[in-house]
């Protein structure tokens, strides 16, 4: 089983760290994984994206031509990446910023009001982790419980204060989809 996900949005929305966290969580689960960020001038304030491939076998290509999942945190990303999503694929959309009126009819859309949910937790900064929680709930790419268990390792040293907040954010996103 191989799943390819593209995370996209504005630079500063935590798009790359969303992908990086997923990739690392998958690695800790012992899966094969590649993480391919967009880089250079592209990430200086403009749009950013990264591709994460998670697999049970050796990964041939880190480039995703037809991803199963796309996370779009802003409108330009939604417009750009909905075209390459697999037919039947899932588009996780930041409903706070994205208008999905122009969506393709052969894909599923999951709208998450990440800004509103994040503000309830006290900071807009965790909007990305809310989205990641929702994606994992809807996609089952990795085990959510294992990820929560490994959160300290995933976020790195010195971020212990943030672990609780990120855990809440991930759980908020996860349970939002459950409802």
């Amino acid at each position: 089983m191989t799943t390819k996900t593209i995370f996209s949005g504005f630079g500063g929305q935590g798009v790359l760290s969303m992908g990086f966290t997923l990739a690392n969580a998958a690695m800790l689960e012992g899966r094969y994984v590649t993480y391919l960020p967009s880089y250079g001038v592209e990430v200086r304030g403009g749009t950013a994206n990264c591709t994460v491939v998670v697999s049970d076998e050796e990964i041939a290509s880190p480039v995703a031509s037809e991803p199963e999942f796309v996370v779009a945190m802003n409108q330009p990303s939604f417009n750009r990446f909905q075209n390459i999503l697999q037919s039947g694929g899932l588009m996780c959309v930041n409903a706070s910023l994205v208008n999905t009126a122009s969506v393709r009819s052969d894909i599923e859309v999951l709208s998450i009001p990440t800004s509103e949910l994040a503000e309830k937790l006290g900071t807009i900064k965790v909007a990305n982790m809310i989205m990641l929680g929702s994606l994992i709930r809807a996609s089952n790419i990795i085990s959510f419980d294992a990820m929560i268990k490994n959160l300290a390792e995933l976020l790195g040293e010195g971020k212990s204060k943030l672990i609780k907040l990120n855990k809440e954010a991930l759980e908020t996103g996860f349970t939002y989809v459950k409802e």
């Binding site: 990086f20 990739a23 690695m27 094969y32 994984v33 590649t34 993480y35 391919l36 960020p37 880089y39 880190p62 480039v63």
Partner: peptide, 10 residues
Amino acid sequence: DGMLGQMMEP
């Protein structure tokens, strides 16, 4: 190439 330099793998 740029991709090999930038991509992350275990």
